[in-house]
Amino acid sequence: MTARDEILARVRQGVGRGDFAARRAAAEAALQAAQRGPQPAIVADPAADLASRLRDKAASLASTVDTVADWAAAPAAVARYLVAHELGEAAVATPEVATLDWAGAGLQVAGRGAEDADRVGISGCFCGIAETGTLLLLSGAATPATVSLLPETHIALLAASRIVATLEDAFALVRAEHGSLPRALNFISGPSRTGDIEQTIVLGAHGPCRVHLILIGDAS
């Protein structure tokens, strides 16, 4: 008997219910009807300003937040941030956002996956989640996961129209736009941190030490 068969036999015995086929059909049906658990108050609040909630929450996670009117204004905002933090003029960007006019803002931006030597990584976001100030990035050919991971500074560009209220809303958007899941959904909530030496929080454990969010087209 293989390990698989033996373990599943034990599980079936422990579950102690017959009619696998009927239970399986019921489970498949349940997967078609997503049931949400208790939802935070912003979901039911028609006046909820998702962009300002996201900004506040991101700031409380030790991210910094900037706002620009449109995508064309993003490279200059990135350049301002790099100058202010003395981070140079070079960056790696996901191919998705590498097509913006970076040279026009005086930056040398390479569209590719990140390498260890890259100091700044620029990415877009699939969406933002207001509840927790979280950014959702999907892996893909034009959106390599390393750009938001290896460089010490991660600059994320997010269209305000892509802000949803909750994690469940983000999942609904992924299902609607992608059907099946890409290799990785990465939910990012601020710079990486550790508390493993005497419970003292330090920013910049293995991932970025700085996360800078640029919100695009936020009218509020």
Partner: peptide, 10 residues
Amino acid sequence: AISNYVSLLT
């Protein structure tokens, strides 16, 4: 409220 990194790997 949420950990810094939550990944769903498929």
